[in-house]
Lab assay of single mutants.
Amino acid sequence: CHSECLGNCSQPDDPTKCVACRNFYLDGRCVETCPPPYYHFQDWRCVNFSFCQDLHHKCKNSRRQGCHQYVIHNNKCIPECPSGYTMNSSNLLCTPCLGPCPKVCHLLEGEKTIDSVTSAQELRGCTVINGSLIINIRGGNNLAAELEANLGLIEEISGYLKIRRSYALVSLSFFRKLRLIRGETLEIGNYSFYALDNQNLRQLWDWSKHNLTITQGKLFFHYNPKLCLSEIHKMEEVSGTKGRQERNDIALKTNGDQASCENELLKFSYIRTSFDKILLRWEPYWPPDFRDLLGFMLFYKEAPYQNVTEFDGQDACGSNSWTVVDIDPPLRSNDPKSQNHPGWLMRGLKPWTQYAIFVKTLVTFSDERRTYGAKSDIIYVQTDATNPSVPLDPISVSNSSSQIILKWKPPSDPNGNITHYLVFWERQAEDSELFELDYCLKGLKLPSRTWSPPFESEDSQKHNQSEYEDSAGECCSCPKTDSQILKELEESSFRKTFEDYLHNVVFVPRKT
């Protein structure tokens, strides 16, 4: 048989008469490798580009789960590009990614509803959504962080984005990388972005840091009482949809009607710091009717980097990364020049730590249904340095008659930039024990000054392991946590139920 035959053949030295091919099969003959313009397919066939392209389009058009959109890589027609490569849609070739590779997620039936953290986790790592997304989240724990972890990498949506009755959302900033909504599939009414009845939605994105392009379709905003109209108009300008909307697409009466839409800028007039305090004062603000001013709200939190936005980490279910302080308005003076500047002394802060701070007014709604208010920009203030805590785990070892090696770990709280350490030492008198000992005694162990690591005695271990207080009263049991108490109650309830079950099964009433 021919060298490319495997198993047997019907005619000697003829690659077209093989029972099976050793390498690849091409047009009725066995070959060692697939010549151009053919590609290896499933490690035994040679196919042309049209064959591989037909497989790709067949799966793409069917949208069946589990099928493969075949691509070409290293002269092979394979189910998908290997790690580190992405497909070129024009020629199906796998090309190296520039940075992290995109991950295209194809949605069944063309859309997916995100109504819980669990459903959001199914899209973790996706960068391109081939379909439409509907966000409908009523509640949950730590929602802002969970949504950002699972949806934060999405850069492109081919269909539309719909935010509907998501009472738990305060902001859409968890879509931190969303840059493009194509609108290839539109919501009824030709809408590519749809926001309806979101009672706590206050911000779409921080438009000073976020760009969003909507290729096709219109915007729809109705019944978002805490979303200011200025935020919607800003989205029109940034996304390129200005002029597409009709009169009733953006409701003037049901958007922002319960919001404090600040239209003035508060400026800080005085800032002073110490290692654990920050004193702030800002310019006074009074609405047209000074009785509408209820006070100020001061927001602050630790910020290692200057990239904080107002609604980071917030949701309507209680999660809030900001510390909020309510401040009463100052006494009002008739003389504008003698107006008191409101302020606040922030206490209990960490030394040498940068804080993000902003302040906003708290006002009631005027009778004319106009909203007044003022808010400052987010500023960054760093507390002063102070003395560091003591170095940890000092170790001293003498390696000769004239040297001592000293080692330690950095302090747990540096409280500033540590530039150097101060080492103090003092000579001590020799131990009298060394002169009084009889060095001729056998088995004498000389006193040693070398360091030995501390260890816990058996008594201390027994005390720590004991669940009861000892007789001397030195140790006591740790208080039980809520989960331990709940577990004990469940076990007790189970024992009672099981005992009742045994009584009912074992003891049967005697027939009379």
Results as ranks from 00 to 15, higher is better:
residue 373 G to F: 03
residue 271 I to L: 08
residue 351 P to F: 06
residue 173 S to I: 08
residue 204 L to T: 08
residue 317 C to L: 12
residue 208 S to L: 13
residue 143 L to G: 13
residue 168 A to P: 15
residue 383 T to H: 00
residue 107 L to D: 03
residue 342 P to Q: 05
residue 266 L to D: 00
residue 262 E to R: 07
residue 320 N to K: 06
residue 187 E to P: 07
residue 109 E to Q: 15
residue 342 P to M: 10
residue 179 R to F: 09
residue 217 G to F: 01
residue 371 T to S: 09
residue 325 V to L: 11
residue 193 F to N: 01
residue 290 F to S: 11
residue 302 E to F: 04
residue 236 E to I: 03
residue 243 G to R: 11
residue 132 S to Y: 01
residue 215 T to M: 08
residue 333 S to G: 06
residue 283 E to V: 13
residue 108 L to M: 13
residue 194 Y to D: 08
residue 149 A to W: 15
residue 266 L to M: 09
residue 356 A to V: 00
residue 190 N to Q: 13
residue 314 Q to H: 04
residue 292 D to N: 11
residue 369 R to E: 06
residue 191 Y to C: 13
residue 242 K to H: 12
residue 382 Q to M: 13
residue 164 R to V: 04
residue 397 V to Y: 14
residue 410 P to T: 15
residue 368 E to N: 04
residue 370 R to M: 03
residue 250 I to P: 09
residue 301 K to E: 02
residue 283 E to W: 05
residue 256 G to S: 06
residue 324 V to Q: 06
residue 313 G to D: 02
residue 160 Y to H: 12
residue 266 L to H: 00
residue 317 C to F: 15
residue 400 S to F: 10
residue 149 A to N: 15
residue 179 R to Y: 10
residue 347 R to F: 09
residue 301 K to H: 11
residue 351 P to K: 04
residue 266 L to Y: 01
residue 208 S to Y: 05
residue 157 I to M: 10
residue 175 F to C: 03
residue 409 K to N: 14
residue 312 D to H: 08
residue 120 A to N: 02
residue 124 R to Y: 01
residue 391 P to R: 03
residue 110 G to L: 08
residue 392 L to I: 06
residue 172 L to A: 07
residue 409 K to F: 12
residue 147 L to H: 02
residue 281 R to K: 12
residue 250 I to S: 06
residue 324 V to M: 10
residue 246 E to S: 08
residue 173 S to R: 08
residue 393 D to W: 15
residue 188 I to Y: 14
residue 180 L to D: 13
residue 214 I to C: 06
residue 249 D to G: 09
residue 209 K to Q: 07
residue 311 F to W: 15
residue 240 G to L: 15
residue 174 F to V: 09
residue 121 Q to L: 11
residue 229 L to V: 15
residue 147 L to R: 01
residue 347 R to E: 12
residue 259 A to I: 15
residue 133 L to N: 00
residue 126 C to N: 00
residue 127 T to P: 04
residue 378 I to N: 01
residue 274 S to E: 09
residue 408 W to V: 01
residue 290 F to M: 02
residue 188 I to P: 04
residue 192 S to G: 08
residue 257 D to Y: 07
residue 162 K to W: 11
residue 189 G to I: 01
residue 147 L to S: 02
residue 173 S to L: 09
residue 300 Y to N: 08
residue 191 Y to E: 04
residue 125 G to V: 05
residue 298 L to E: 00
residue 225 P to V: 10
residue 266 L to E: 00
residue 119 S to P: 05
residue 121 Q to A: 09
residue 107 L to M: 07
residue 113 T to Y: 12
residue 347 R to L: 08
residue 170 V to C: 09
residue 131 G to Q: 01
residue 389 S to M: 05
residue 148 E to T: 10
residue 227 L to D: 00
residue 273 T to V: 15
residue 334 N to Q: 12
residue 334 N to M: 06
residue 233 H to C: 14
residue 209 K to H: 14
residue 245 Q to Y: 05
residue 344 W to S: 09
residue 358 F to A: 15
residue 379 I to M: 13
residue 183 G to H: 02
residue 153 L to S: 12
residue 358 F to S: 09
residue 341 H to A: 10
residue 125 G to L: 12
residue 342 P to I: 11
residue 108 L to G: 12
residue 354 Q to V: 04
residue 274 S to A: 05
residue 267 K to F: 09
residue 198 N to I: 02
residue 169 L to T: 08
residue 130 N to C: 03
residue 249 D to P: 09
residue 127 T to D: 04
residue 132 S to N: 11
residue 179 R to I: 12
residue 202 R to I: 01
residue 278 I to K: 01
residue 248 N to I: 10
residue 206 D to T: 06
residue 163 I to H: 01
residue 156 E to D: 12
residue 138 R to Q: 14
residue 411 P to N: 01
residue 309 T to V: 13
residue 246 E to F: 11
residue 343 G to H: 13
residue 254 T to F: 06
residue 288 P to R: 11
residue 199 Q to R: 12
residue 153 L to W: 14
residue 380 Y to A: 01
residue 331 L to A: 14
residue 180 L to S: 10
residue 257 D to C: 13
residue 206 D to R: 03
residue 346 M to Y: 01
residue 297 M to K: 13
residue 354 Q to G: 11
residue 251 A to K: 11
residue 159 G to I: 00
residue 232 I to L: 11
residue 352 W to N: 04
residue 150 N to I: 08
residue 285 Y to W: 05
residue 373 G to S: 04
residue 269 S to I: 15
residue 195 A to S: 09
residue 213 T to I: 11
residue 115 D to F: 05
residue 398 S to I: 14
residue 177 K to L: 05
residue 257 D to Q: 11
residue 165 R to L: 06
residue 283 E to P: 04
residue 179 R to K: 12
residue 364 T to S: 15
residue 374 A to P: 15
residue 173 S to E: 11
residue 149 A to R: 04
residue 194 Y to F: 13
residue 209 K to R: 11
residue 279 L to K: 15
residue 262 E to M: 04
residue 240 G to T: 03
residue 201 L to F: 10
residue 189 G to N: 14
residue 108 L to S: 12
residue 240 G to P: 05
residue 193 F to K: 00
residue 397 V to R: 07
residue 296 F to T: 01
residue 292 D to E: 14
residue 288 P to G: 03
residue 189 G to W: 05
residue 306 Q to R: 12
residue 226 K to Q: 09
residue 122 E to A: 15
residue 171 S to E: 14
residue 403 Q to F: 05
residue 151 L to S: 01
residue 352 W to D: 15
residue 164 R to M: 15
residue 407 K to F: 02
residue 303 A to Y: 13
residue 293 L to H: 06
residue 315 D to G: 11
residue 252 L to M: 10
residue 260 S to M: 07
residue 309 T to P: 06
residue 388 P to M: 04
residue 327 I to H: 02
residue 373 G to C: 04
residue 410 P to R: 07
residue 288 P to I: 12
residue 255 N to H: 05
residue 162 K to Q: 15
residue 171 S to G: 13
residue 362 L to Q: 03
residue 146 E to D: 10
residue 116 S to K: 14
residue 290 F to K: 03
residue 340 N to P: 07
residue 406 L to M: 07
residue 376 S to G: 01
residue 179 R to C: 13
residue 334 N to H: 15
residue 153 L to K: 13
residue 312 D to N: 05
residue 193 F to S: 00
residue 110 G to F: 10
residue 144 A to S: 15
residue 234 K to L: 04
residue 211 N to I: 14
residue 381 V to H: 02
residue 318 G to K: 07
residue 185 T to L: 11
residue 188 I to N: 02
residue 268 F to Q: 00
residue 159 G to S: 02
residue 115 D to Y: 03
residue 187 E to C: 12
residue 133 L to I: 02
residue 342 P to D: 06
residue 336 P to R: 03
residue 397 V to H: 13
residue 378 I to P: 01
residue 360 K to V: 08
residue 106 H to Y: 12
residue 248 N to C: 14
residue 221 F to C: 15
residue 288 P to A: 10
residue 133 L to T: 01
residue 333 S to C: 10
residue 203 Q to G: 01
residue 407 K to P: 00
residue 322 W to M: 04
residue 361 T to F: 04
residue 188 I to C: 04
residue 168 A to V: 06
residue 401 S to Y: 11
residue 195 A to P: 00
residue 301 K to V: 05
residue 259 A to T: 11
residue 371 T to Q: 11
residue 339 Q to F: 13
residue 210 H to R: 14
residue 365 F to V: 15
residue 150 N to H: 13
residue 141 N to D: 06
residue 187 E to S: 09
residue 182 R to S: 11
residue 213 T to Q: 10
residue 268 F to N: 00
residue 280 L to I: 07
residue 210 H to I: 06
residue 186 L to H: 14
residue 239 S to V: 14
residue 244 R to F: 06
residue 119 S to G: 12
residue 293 L to W: 06
